[in-house]
Structures are given as C-alpha cells and as structure tokens.
Design a protein around this nucleic acid. Structure first.
Lengths: 251, 251
DNA sequence: GAGTGGTCTAGACCACAAC
DNA sequence: TTGTGGTCTAGACCACTCC
C-alpha cells in the first residue's frame, strides 16, 4: 500500500475516462469482475473504486445491469423575478425551457409544530393548512414541497383549499390578493445538503446527488405563507438575472 | 439477509441517535470494533454502516480518533441585493453575521480557453486576466473563485491588477465604473454538486458535503467579467430577500 | 502500547436483468 | 444460464492518535 490506495488509482483511471469523454454520459463502466481481473485486485477493492466514483456523482449503478456514467438534465428556475403577480410558478419556465410539468398535491389541516409555528410567527398548536406538492418534470419527481398557511387568515375564503393538481394555479401573491391580503416581502434561504434516505427513495435520487433546500416565507408585514422546497440538484439550476440600476447617466 | 441489509439496520440506529439528539454535533459515534461486538457483525459491515451515515452528511471520520456527528456552521450570503455599487462583497455580511474573512488571490494573464471565451463572448486564445481567490471564513477555506476579464478592456487602466488580499476591495461595478464602463446586468446560475477530489483536499471538505457552484457574469451590454464561485455547502446559506412592489394601493 | 479508522484478500452467497 | 451489482465473513495488516 502506497500513499494513494489501490482503489484510488483505479478510481482515478475511471474518472479520467469520464472527464476526458472517452466514456460519455449513459455509457457503461467496466464491470466489477473486469476490474478485478484487469488490476488483479479483490472484489471489495473494485467495488470501492466504483463507490468512490459514484459518491462524486459521476456514475450510477443498477443491480444486474452495470454502472453507468451519470447524465445531468438541467431545468432552469428563476430566483430573482420568480415572485411577481401573474407569474405561473413553473409553467413559464417550462414554456421557455421546453419541458413538461405535472403536479400532485395533498391537502390537510394540522396543528402547527414548534418549527412551523416559529416560521409563521404563531403559537405551537394553532391550526394551519398544509399542502404537500410533488412536481414531476418530464415524468420524474424532481421537486417536493410542503407549504403551510395560518388557517385563521384564510378560513372560509375561496383560497382555503388549493386548486389541486392544476399546473395553472396562480402564484401566492395573486391568491392572497384575492382575499385582500397584499404580500409585500418574500424571504428565501437556499441550502444544499445530501438527501435523506426517504427523499432518495421518494424522488429516486441516486447516490452522490445533493439537493437544494429552499425555505421560503411570504409576508404581509407578518408571515402569511411558508414552505420548504426540495429540488434535485442534478436536475435544477437556479437562475438569478438582475438589471443594475444606472448611477448617473448613460451606460 | 432480509429486505434491508444488516448495515442498513445499524445505520438506522446510528441515524436515530443523531436525529433524536442523543448524539449531539461533535459527539463521538461508537467505534467500528464496538459495533462489530454489539451487533455481532464483521468489520466490513460496521464500516459500511458508518460509511452510509457519512455519505448522508451526518458524520465525519478521523483516522486514529473516531467518527463524530457533523457540525454545520451557517454563514449567510445575500443574492438579491449583493450586486450594488459600494457593496463590499463579503465584508458587510461578515459584519452583520459576526464572522471574520480573509482572502488570498493569485493573478495571471492567460489565453482564453474555449470555455472562458464562450463565457466572455471572445475568440479562443484572446488574452484575459485571471484571478483565483480563496476566501477564509473563521480561518477555514470555505470559498474559492476564479475570475476572468477580457484584457483588452482593462489593459493599462488602474484596475488591470486586482488589489490583492484586500478584504476591502471594491465591488465589480465600482471597479468598472472607475474606467468608464458601466455594468448594466448581472447573470448568475447556481448549481449544486459533489466536490471534486481536488476541491475536497483544498477546502478540506469531508465526505457527504456538497458544494454550491455559482457561475456569474457581469455585462455592460457585452460580458466584461465572469467568474466561477465554489462555496462549501455545509457552511453557506444563500439568502434572497425581496420587497414586492405594491399593485394598486396599500398593503 | 492500546485503540482508532483505513486498506486489502479470498472466498461465499444473494438479488436482479438479459438472453 | 450467465453476467451484473449487492451483502457478508474472517481474517491480516497499515496509519494515525493519544496516553
């Protein structure tokens, strides 16, 4: 054993094949047995080399079939101009990007947990509406979000229940406008992390693929809506385009 | 072997200890030998269980010491209002967040690669300035960026070389203002991915921690600056706060 | 020296996919 | 049936940390 382990050298070879383009996205990597023979190593070492590559997000493995170079689809999601009135959340981006979106939703009314209460500036136990959305992009679940709104704000109004499964559903601002509540601020925090085992299963996320987690709150002086949005990191690109105000004269 | 593998059950136990808070960030996990005895499994299985936990970003391992529950520092970085004149890139956020920043830079002039050329709308081979920044936050490298600018725009001007290592260096807009070029647009694409082995080494990123990759371009009708910014995902939170314009009357 | 994680061997057998 | 990845055993030895 030298400074770099055996599996590291093998992994570097594989990595080089991928980076250089000798192996294109979708191509099959050498099988574990092939690696055993070619390098004269045990099964465990061959597996470890591939595991290392997989962990870097460069490959995925399928039992009975083989390991394959990762493919990365990119859907664009606007951050800057996303929250305006009349903006249909995912439809507009889909139109310009040429992909299809479907959505499913589950609606319920629950008591606010400590976490939800702190996000919405309520007391724990107060009632909130909860909607779980799953967004399918080109047939795959690439986004899951959970949304909460204080029930006392919207109870008995037309927006108490969401327009389920409708890709044309209006944005949050317009929904609240319709009951006389005018959102004046949107706050977002964007994190990245590895998916939980549950998320990996639910969204069929392979090993080595992180997710975006966006925590968003709409406020009309006080919070009126908050959501946690989880996006597959190998599918989505967040785009932030801004026009810079001119200072004095021309540009 | 049943539906869930042995290492999965062990990993679930460990995970539960972490999630529940029985093991706090920084606490030591049971050693591999302890797990072998406690569950009556081989060394490899105990290792696999911990590797699984590590891959989820929940733990880190140190040779000779043990495995420990991950700690997650959070520094906030504004997206929305980041690019204005007079905004000192990291100083202001550092002031409000209570952390310290240092920066090192390497300056050079190189020929544009195909990639750089396409980003800056140049022909491959044209000269560009390249600056590599490394940002240290509370003493750790948490950000690395590479910046390119077309040399023909800035050659012979006071901004040809950057003000190295100065945390107070002005923002891009102000720099270009000073030579009569007025930036009118900023475009950003934000991705998340696993770090490369080189990045893991350079920024001491543990297994199971993804990075943000921000590709940014400043334009004054044509591109005048572009950069790739890599941020440790377990350290940084991107913040996007927006004031919503009122529609008709009050809110 | 004792305890920790890291690497590696040489097997065995299981689960799944394709032919 | 053959080939693929996935799980597991029972060892051995190396590299590092701490006492």
């Amino acid at each position: 054993m030298s400074v770099t382990p055996l599996y590291g050298k093998i992994a570097d070879d594989l990595r080089q094949m991928i980076i250089s383009g000798d192996l294109a996205p979708g191509d099959r990597l050498p099988s574990e047995r092939e690696i055993c023979e070619r390098y004269g190593v045990s099964h465990a070492v061959a597996r470890q080399a591939i595991a290392y590559i997989r962990q870097q997000g460069l490959a995925v493995s399928h039992q009975g079939k083989g390991s394959f170079v990762s493919e990365r689809r990119e859907y664009f999601r606007n951050i800057g101009s996303r929250y305006g009135r009349g903006f249909k959340p995912n439809l507009r981006e889909s139109e310009e990007g040429g992909w299809t979106t479907h959505v499913t939703s589950e609606f319920s009314q629950i008591q606010a947990t400590d976490y939800i209460a702190s996000r919405l500036d309520l007391s724990p136990g107060e009632m909130v509406t909860q909607v779980i959305y799953r967004w399918l992009t080109d047939g795959e679940v690439t986004e899951k979000s959970i949304q909460w709104e204080p029930l006392n704000l919207i109870k008995g109004t037309p927006i108490e229940t969401p327009s389920s499964g409708d890709i044309n559903q209006p944005d949050v601002l317009t929904r609240f406008d319709s009951i006389g509540i005018h959102v004046d601020e949107v706050k977002e925090e964007i994190r990245t992390r590895m998916p939980t085992p549950e998320e990996m299963q639910e969204m069929r996320i392979p090993v080595g693929v992180p997710v975006f987690e966006i925590q968003r709150t709409h406020l009309s002086f006080v919070p009126v809506e908050t959501a946690i949005i989880v996006l597959r990191g190998d599918k989505w690109v967040l785009r932030n385009n801004q026009v810079v105000p001119v200072e004095n004269e021309s540009a």
